[in-house]
Computed example of a mutant assay.
Amino acid sequence: MNANHPERRGSAWAPVITPFTSSLSVDTPRLIDHCRWLQSHGVGLAVFGTNSEANSLSVTEKRDLLSRLERAGLNPARMMPGTGHCAIDDSVALTRDAVQMGAAGVLMLPPFYYKGVSDEGLFRYYAEVIERVGDSRLKVFLYHIPPVAQVPLSLGLIERLRDAFPQTVVGIKDSGGDWAHTLNLIERFAADGFEVYAGSERFLLDTLRAGGAGCISATANVNPAAIAALAGAWQDADADQRQAGLNQVRDLFESYPVIPAMKAAKASFSGVDDWHRLRPPLVELDSQRRQSLLAALEAQGFSMPEGKDVSH
Rank of each mutant, 00 (worst) to 15 (best):
L230G: 02
L65I: 09
L69W: 02
E159Y: 08
S67G: 15
R63E: 13
E201W: 12
Y256D: 01
S40D: 11
E284T: 12
E70V: 09
N75H: 06
L109I: 05
K62F: 02
G199P: 08
G193C: 12
L252C: 08
Y256C: 01
V47C: 02
A244F: 10
L208R: 14
Q235W: 03
A77V: 07
R279E: 01
H5M: 14
Q248C: 08
P224F: 13
V99M: 00
F141T: 09
R279V: 01
L230Q: 05
L293K: 12
F123L: 04
K266T: 14
M304S: 08
I186F: 08
V92K: 05
P147S: 06
Q150W: 09
G73H: 06
E306I: 07
D163K: 11
S292N: 13
A225N: 07
D274I: 09
R160P: 00
A210D: 01
L69V: 03
A98C: 02
Q243I: 03
T50C: 06
L157Q: 06
H181Q: 11
L65C: 03
L65R: 00
S40C: 02
A244M: 08
L293Q: 08
D90T: 00
S40H: 01
S52N: 05
S52V: 04
L185D: 03
E201T: 14
H312A: 15
L38R: 06
M1Q: 13
R242W: 07
E254R: 12
W13H: 04
Y143Q: 02
A267H: 01
L66Q: 02
Y114Q: 12
H312P: 11
G193V: 10
Q235P: 00
P224S: 13
Q235C: 00
E7S: 11
A12D: 04
D309F: 13
G232H: 03
G212E: 00
A198Q: 07
Q150F: 12
A225T: 11
A233W: 11
L122F: 04
D135Y: 05
L142T: 04
G193W: 06
H41D: 15
K263F: 10
P76W: 12
L122S: 02
D206A: 15
Q291C: 11
L57G: 09
S311A: 14
G212Y: 02
G212M: 06
L204G: 05
G245N: 12
L138K: 12
D206N: 12
Q241N: 13
F112G: 03
A87R: 15
H181T: 15
P19L: 06
N223A: 08
E159C: 11
P15D: 05
V249G: 00
D89A: 15
V272S: 02
L107H: 03
G176R: 01
S255M: 06
L208H: 13
S25H: 15
V140N: 03
L293G: 06
I17V: 15
P76A: 11
P19I: 07
V129P: 00
A213E: 08
